[in-house]
């Protein structure tokens, strides 16, 4: 096990606890704002809360992934990776997983609080859980791909989100539909299988795509 390589990625979050807590706080802040805007109508909120959770998750994951490579790029670590004879695909894979684990996974753990706030039934809650577990790693990978594309541009705060959000659509559609099906008492196996296959397709291929993108981004 390449322990120091693992440690480096983890320390990035451990030594900047804000990276972990800010997305969590942001998520709960935005979620709490929705009832203020659409009114405290219980049945309406119950109907649209899965969509709200997913939209908020998107914003949160964009926050943490859109400048993902900025530091490594400015510190010359990307150059170091690409001038090393070691294959960096594993490191990139690790980076995706760890970014997801520290920025999105805490939110997923705290989703039951949302379900108390918005009266979500236990059955629906498990489905929300499942779709988030399967869908968010894809969102994070795509967001990181966007940040690799925009890495070389100095002012790119909103550019990454603009190019990546269209790619989120399949995950969004199937997640939202799974949740809707379960709250209407319909089967939702198909949606879960589709989400699972998207995840299994994206995760192994993304490191290779990222490596290639990074090469172009630092100009070769």
């Amino acid at each position: 096990m390449n322990s120091i390589i693992f440690k480096k990625e983890i320390y990035t979050y451990f030594r900047n606890l804000n990276y972990i807590f800010l997305p969590l706080i942001f998520f709960f802040l935005v979620i709490s704002i929705f009832p203020l805007v659409i009114g405290p109508n219980k049945s309406l909120i119950a109907k649209i809360i899965p969509g709200i959770i997913w939209i908020t998750i998107i914003f949160t994951s964009l926050l943490s992934s859109s400048n993902f490579f900025k530091d490594d790029y400015n510190n010359g670590i990307i150059e170091m990776y690409l001038t090393s004879e070691k294959s960096i695909e594993f490191i990139l894979f690790l980076k995706i997983i760890i970014c997801w684990f520290f920025t999105i996974f805490p939110i997923i753990i705290f989703i039951p609080i949302v379900s108390i706030m918005f009266n979500i039934s236990l059955h629906t809650l498990t489905t929300i859980f499942l779709t988030l577990l399967l869908g968010t790693p894809v969102l994070v990978s795509i967001g990181i791909f966007g940040s690799a594309l925009t890495m070389g541009i100095s002012k790119n705060n909103i550019l990454g989100p603009i190019i990546t959000v269209p790619f989120y659509i399949p995950v969004l559609i199937f997640s939202a539909s799974a949740i809707e099906s379960v709250s209407n008492g319909l089967p939702y196996d198909l949606q879960i299988y589709v989400l699972l296959s998207i995840l299994l397709l994206i995760l192994p291929t993304m490191p290779y795509l990222l490596k290639y993108t990074l090469r172009i981004s630092i100009n070769n």
């Binding site: 320390y11 900047n16 510190n75 010359g76 150059e79 004879e85």
Partner: peptide, 19 residues
């Protein structure tokens, strides 16, 4: 495989600030 013989240190130091 020229990279196995080559070490490059750019003017950015390739150091992680968090380590």
């Amino acid at each position: 495989n020229f990279l196995e013989n080559l070490v490059y240190i750019g003017h950015n130091d390739s150091l992680s600030e968090n380590l």
